[in-house]
């Protein structure tokens, strides 16, 4: 089961109000960032997952911080992956159930179930398929603003995320998920999911309101380059509305 966050703080923010990012501005909105979740297995001789990962690397260079990429490793029928996490598997089963394709990696989901790009045959074509989807997604706006933060205590990291509802409508039944992804100092293993936590359901987030979500402590490897990725989704974890990342400083 997911490790659940517990503590929610309601705060009245002091963010500037003269721009579109001011939650109190009914016309406020933010650029939507695209969450890419790639389920892969790299412990096999076939190389097809590497095609997808290499394409994602290229994509990251192309789109910069407009896209957040998380690499979930999982076991397959024939190959175990030492980076496999039980939580990754639960996440994968959840996504696959939303589609009718067969299970198999690489399997890339964009903004939750917004799009699925399964399989790969070469880097260029994987890139082409990903870009076809991203071209539409990156031009969207979002009505959420996320400010990831964290506190560190030893080898534990506690994500503390400020979530603001923009625009003029309230949002209901939200879920915030926090991931620690690590650069493993190996090619194509630059954003491997190491830990996952999710909040309790947020019943209502009124427009113009901010909320700080504090997650439970997550273990992390201080010797790696780590990044905290946070995204907000619906309670069924179907659609990702907005995402953001923050590098975890070297310790």
């Amino acid at each position: 089961m997911w490790a659940c966050a517990a503590v929610l703080f309601f705060m009245c923010g002091d963010m500037p109000r003269d721009n579109v990012l001011d939650p109190k501005n009914p016309d406020s909105l933010a650029l939507r960032k695209v969450m890419i979740e790639a389920f892969v297995n790299t412990n096999n001789p076939l190389g097809i997952n590497e095609y997808a990962l290499e394409a994602l690397d290229s994509l990251s260079l192309l789109y910069g911080d407009r896209v957040m990429i998380a690499e979930y490793h999982r076991n397959t029928a024939d190959y175990t992956d030492p980076l496999h996490l039980e939580k990754n598997e639960l996440m994968y089963q959840h996504y696959v159930a939303l589609f009718d394709h067969i299970k198999g990696v690489p399997d890339v989901f964009i903004n939750g179930s917004g799009a699925r790009i399964q399989g790969a045959s070469d880097v260029a074509y994987s890139m082409f398929r990903l870009e076809q989807v991203l071209a539409g997604e990156v031009s969207e706006n979002a009505c959420f603003l996320i400010e990831p933060g964290y506190s560190v205590s030893g080898d534990k990291l506690r994500p503390e995320v400020r979530l603001a509802r923009l625009g003029s409508e309230n949002a209901e039944n939200l879920l915030v998920r926090a991931l620690i992804v690590s650069h493993l100092n190996r090619p194509l293993h630059t954003r491997v999911v190491q830990a996952v936590a999710e909040s309790n359901i947020i019943p209502v987030l009124k427009h113009g309101e901010q909320q700080v979500v504090v997650f439970p402590d997550l273990a992390f490897d201080r010797g790696l380059l780590n990044t905290l990725i946070v995204y907000v989704t619906d309670a069924q974890s179907t659609t990702i509305f907005q995402c953001e990342s923050k590098a975890i400083g070297a310790m």
Binding site: L46, T76, A77, D78, V96, K103, P106, Q118, G119, Y125
Partner: peptide, 10 residues
């Protein structure tokens, strides 16, 4: 046609 390869899941 193009066939995109996968490792079958379980």
């Amino acid at each position: 046609v193009r066939v995109e390869g996968i490792l079958l899941g379980k």
